[in-house]
Design a protein around this nucleic acid. Sequence first.
DNA 1: AGGGATACCTTGACTTTCTAGGCAACCGAT
DNA 2: ATCGGTTGCCTAGAAAGTCAAGGTATCCCT
Lengths: 110, 110
Amino acid sequence: MGRKRADLLQGTLDLLVLRVLSREDLHGWGLSKRIRQLSGDVLEVNQGSLYPALYRLRDRGLIEGSWGISPEGRRARFYRLTRAGQKEVDAEQENWRLFTAAVERVLVAD
Amino acid sequence: MGRKRADLLQGTLDLLVLRVLSREDLHGWGLSKRIRQLSGDVLEVNQGSLYPALYRLRDRGLIEGSWGISPEGRRARFYRLTRAGQKEVDAEQENWRLFTAAVERVLVAD
DNA sequence: AGGGATACCTTGACTTTCTAGGCAACCGAT
DNA sequence: ATCGGTTGCCTAGAAAGTCAAGGTATCCCT
């Protein structure tokens, strides 16, 4: 019900995850912290949204996961972009830009 | 399943409707055409999304509707912003800007 | 008579997100 | 030794918004 700040708009989470993973392989927990940090503490990624999103992306063949050891020395599953994911992130970002530009046009119309 | 663009991101429709109504009173059909036109034919508003959105906004007390005659001479329900709606549109727009700026920061990081 | 445009409205499925948990291992402090 | 905090993964159920696909009615033009 209440609209908090930090609530994500449907569809943006996939793009954010893909874009961050396009720069570095990360595990879920780290991804969450990275997105929050990069966004300047504006975007909060819920675990309950993140993991389902990762499985979605994996099922679509855009990312792959493998177990490893986190910088903190814990067992963690690291994700990396597949070839398809590298293409998808560019497409989705282009899309996002087109979309926000269109919204902006409506917002500022004369 | 397929993701077309023109699909709206959840949450933006309310803002678009409020912003357009903040400049002119319109009925559903006209609102739909106006948003498409202002966005440069990028944003398509489905009737099945628009009417529920209008009722939501009405139930939240942000807009009011009244029957009238459209420019084409047809019976149509015109909506206008309430006082609360005028405040809300500014708040939601500010919110949208903060959100997109945060996303952009993640997208272009280093 | 028929088709197209205008205009309103509803239903059901679908997708995504959120809330709110659970589980486990590790670490520092008491 | 145990307690709380952190790291880390995962899931179930509910809530919300959008979409596809309808239906209804009136008006106008051919």
